[in-house]
Nucleic acid binder design. Structure first.
Lengths: 196, 196
DNA sequence: TCAGTTGTTAAGACCTACTACTAATGTTTA
DNA sequence: TAAACATTAGTAGTAGGTCTTAACAACTGA
């Protein structure tokens, strides 16, 4: 049967375009050893768009990905904030936040959410983490919703102690005590460093 | 002077293409209220490639970005490893690892490198961070090369104490003590949890 | 075996979004 | 006012397609 060859060619075409999406019909035709017309016919029947369209959509995706990366920079969504008192953030664990190829969340995502929240809680221009103590109690899995709650403790000068508890459905998965520092004191520190 | 208007238009063009890289010359012409020819002339003088070229390069970048993201999952490059003794990793701080819109590295990237290294140092199947103590001494800036060195301390059963020191050109920017746990004991823990 | 169906290729007109060039018309400013 | 610059219009040519028609080969059922 001739259509067997056709089916196989269709598979090849799909694989080829999947792995090399920026190939033109001409290039595809030469690599698959068929005519230009056949490639185009096949593309139409398989409803695969032309190179330029494929390229364009990839570029579009790339921009949206970049934007979402920017958003994820503030790791988790800040859903509640009482400046210098406490705050609340939610992180939806997706495959992106997984540890290697497992289905549980990498510890540094949990850390990132907690540390970001601790920083966001303090209402100053430039705030960074100075030191921290962390404890991971249970793993979190992809598909779960991680809730982080921060509470500001004592503060001396530009140093604030911020405690963060992260939970999944009321089960505590993480506790951290962050000492965060607002920027003036960093400058002081670097000044001191220069003095020495 | 007419060339003032030209300069301004050039600025507008650059901004426009920067924010909307998928615009065609025609669209640009209508939004900037000039002729098609002018847009093309300007593009040539500013050596900005055509839409299709811009789109294509974005799509290409996107694929390489995806690949590098996968690689970055192991945060930093492991450049030396003595299993269960110590290891060395390098992280090149780029704009991607910056904290918000500043030019210094977010603390969670430094953490991620250190924690990943601590885990990689222990030669077991499933290893996770149990608890940690961190200290950030100085900020790291984009363009710098962060070197993290791990050293395994005492270990009891499935718990290992791993110390990590991160430096930029021999200046210490971070020190951390991680207690990492190999997977068997997590199972035990969850078993215990079920018992309770 | 022969008409009908299906698969493949070729050919032509058209499209978009350009490049590269020329020519004409403004607009300054020395 | 003339030379110099800025802008626009227009033409020919390109890549990488679409969409349609036509021709021919190969297989299939009656």
């Amino acid at each position: 049967m001739r259509s067997e060859a056709k089916k196989q060619r269709h598979k090849q075409l799909i694989n080829l375009i999947d792995s090399h999406p920026l190939m033109t019909d001409k290039e595809i035709a030469t690599t698959l050893q068929v005519s230009l017309g056949t490639v185009r016919l096949d593309r139409v029947t398989l409803s695969i768009p032309e190179v330029r369209e494929r390229t364009r959509s990839m570029a579009e995706q790339a921009t949206s990905r970049l934007k979402s990366m920017r958003l994820e920079e503030v790791i988790g969504d800040l859903v509640g904030l009482e400046p210098n008192k406490g705050a609340l953030s939610v992180l939806f664990a997706t495959r992106n936040t997984a540890f290697r190829h497992t289905d549980f969340v990498g510890d540094y995502y949990i850390y990132a959410q907690a540390a970001s929240l601790a920083i966001a809680t303090i209402d100053k221009e430039m705030v960074v983490v100075g030191s921290a103590r962390l404890k991971y109690n249970r793993p979190a899995y992809i598909g779960e919703k991680i809730l982080a709650r921060s509470k500001v403790g004592v503060h001396k000068g530009n140093k604030y102690v911020v405690s963060v508890r992260s939970t999944v459905e009321n089960r505590e998965i993480f506790v951290g005590r962050f000492v965060v520092v607002s920027k003036d004191s960093i400058d002081k520190k670097s000044m001191e460093a220069k003095k020495c």
